[in-house]
């Protein structure tokens, strides 16, 4: 592998996250590369989602949650007291496990985020671009005024992705985006993720190891440490993690010995 200058999109440094007294994730150092897909895998309850939500401060919606350490975004720690979480979330978008379109029209689902974020350009164009970007335009272009909830699960999830890219984030966080979908819909989303990675940095949590192997460039393996806290066990290029991991635990997990 040639030595080239790789740009970082976001980086966690010594990050620990707590729910009240319980430390859910402990001292994670994780570097996320620009315009690549980073997968977070690991057994259930090891804090994968918590880690993901740390990148746009979504954990703060749980009243008892708090963080220690740094998350650097363009050199700025997003946990600094002068940082506005709302600003962070405008740059770091999120797609959730269960498709959750707003009970509004398809058009408004996409346009709403742009509108509250003060978008001044042509809204129709933005909606069309975003829906095309999420590879759902052809399916919905004739029924933009229909309720978003009337779509199928896979379409709903792509609508949610369209809605996220409409606000032009740098990074898209995906929290097991395919776990509620059938295999065909999953395939669509995976193809879409590869296309999106040309313009966006994607971090995806998945417990489907084939999916991580198929779509991601880098893989972070989380495991349960002492006191049931999540730790970053191993991080590296996906090929390496899946073929020749440094740690025995990583290999055990990937080959299905536990998890």
């Amino acid at each position: 592998m040639a030595k080239k200058d790789i740009e970082l999109a976001i980086e966690a440094r010594n990050l620990s996250i707590y729910y009240g007294d319980f430390r859910a994730v402990t001292e994670v150092n994780l570097k996320v590369v620009q315009n690549k897909i980073t997968a977070i895998i690991g057994p259930s309850g090891c804090g994968k989602s918590t880690m993901l939500r740390a990148f746009n401060r979504m954990n703060e919606l749980v009243p008892t949650a708090w963080a220690e350490g740094e998350v650097l975004y363009h050199g700025k720690n997003i946990y600094d007291p002068d940082v506005d979480p709302v600003e962070v979330r405008r740059r770091v978008g999120m797609v959730f496990q269960k498709p959750n379109p707003f009970p509004k029209s398809i058009y408004d689902n996409v346009a709403w985020g742009a509108r509250v974020n003060g978008y001044k350009g042509n809204m129709d164009d933005l909606v069309e671009q975003s829906l095309k970007g999420a590879a759902i335009w052809d399916e919905v272009k004739d029924k933009l005024d229909q309720n978003g909830l009337s779509l199928s699960g896979g379409q709903q999830q792509r609508l949610c992705i369209a809605r996220t890219i409409a606000i032009k984030p740098d990074i898209i966080l995906m929290d097991e985006p395919c776990s509620a979908l059938d295999p065909i819909a999953t395939l669509h989303i995976e193809e879409l993720m590869r296309e999106l990675s040309e313009d966006y940095t994607i971090i995806i949590v998945t417990h489907n190891m084939q999916q991580a192997a198929r779509v991601s460039d880098y893989t972070a393996f989380f495991n349960l440490g002492e006191g049931r806290t999540g730790i970053l066990d191993e991080f590296g290029e996906t090929d390496k993690i899946f073929t020749n991991p440094d740690h025995q635990t990583t290999e055990d997990y990937i080959t299905g010995r536990f998890g």
């Binding site: 746009n56 979504m58 919606l61 600003e87 979330r89 269960k98 709403w112 509250v116």
Partner: peptide, 12 residues
């Protein structure tokens, strides 16, 4: 999930 979606898009 609706609140999360909204916050996730940078809404106040």
């Amino acid at each position: 999930s609706l609140r999360q979606a909204s916050f996730g898009m940078g809404a106040t």
